[in-house]
Computed example of a mutant assay.
Amino acid sequence: MVAWRYRAAGRAMRLYARIVRPRTFGVRALVLDPAGRVALVRHHYIDGWYLPGGGVDRGESADAAIRRELIEEVGLRAVTIAGLLGVYHNRGEAKDDHVVVYRCVVDDPAALRAADRREIAEAGWFSLDALPDGTSPATRRRIDEHRAGAHGIGRW
C-alpha cells in the first residue's frame, strides 16, 4: 500500500528534474562484508538493485551523509569508511547530479536489513560475481571498478 506512494513520488521527482534540472549532490556506498559480498538495495519507487545511498543535505558533509544513509536505509551503524571509489557525474533522467562513492566495510553482516520499509523493499548481500538480475548498469560499473582496483571518475 505504501509502495505505490513512493513509486508515485519517484515519478513526480523525475518529472520535476526534467523540467527544473536542479543540480544535486549524492553519496553511495560500496559496502563489503568479511566474505567479500556487496550490500545492495531494491527501492519501492524504482526498479532494480542499487548501492545504498542518497542525497547530501544542506550543511552536511558527504561522509556524514553516507553514514546517515546507511543507518536509514539498511540499518548499518558500525561501518568503516575504507576510502573513496570515485566521484561521478550523472546526467541520466535529466539529472545534473554529482555522486561520491565510498568503499566501506562492516564486521557484522547480520545487521543489514531494509531499515526504512517505506523506501527500501529489500536489502541483501551478494557475491561480486553473482549479482541479482536487475542490478543497475551504474551499480555494475562501480562494482567492476572496485574489482579492478580502479578509482572511478567521470560518467555515472
Rank of each mutant, 00 (worst) to 15 (best):
R91D: 11
D96K: 12
Y50S: 01
A65Q: 02
M13Y: 11
G75L: 09
Y88W: 13
G92K: 09
A9H: 09
P109W: 06
K95L: 15
H146M: 07
G10M: 15
R140H: 01
R42T: 11
A123T: 00
V27M: 09
P137R: 08
Y102H: 12
E69S: 05
R11L: 15
R155C: 07
G152A: 03
R77A: 15
G59T: 02
A148Y: 03
L131P: 08
I46L: 14
T80L: 05
E60K: 06
R21H: 15
H98K: 04
E122Q: 01
L84F: 02
R155H: 10
I46P: 09
R147L: 15
L112Q: 02
C104R: 00
M13K: 12
A114V: 07
L76V: 14
R42V: 09
P34K: 08
M1H: 14
H43S: 10
F126K: 15
A65T: 03
N90M: 08
A8F: 03
A148E: 01
E60C: 05
F25M: 10
A3V: 10
L40T: 00
A12M: 04
G10R: 15
A130N: 07
A114F: 03
V105P: 00
T135M: 03
A35G: 01
V2N: 13
R91Q: 11
R117T: 13
V56T: 06
H89F: 11
Y6G: 12
G134Y: 05
R28A: 13
D108C: 06
I143W: 12
H44M: 04
P34E: 03
A62M: 13
A123N: 00
G83N: 04
G10H: 14
Y102K: 08
V99M: 05
G54C: 04
R28T: 14
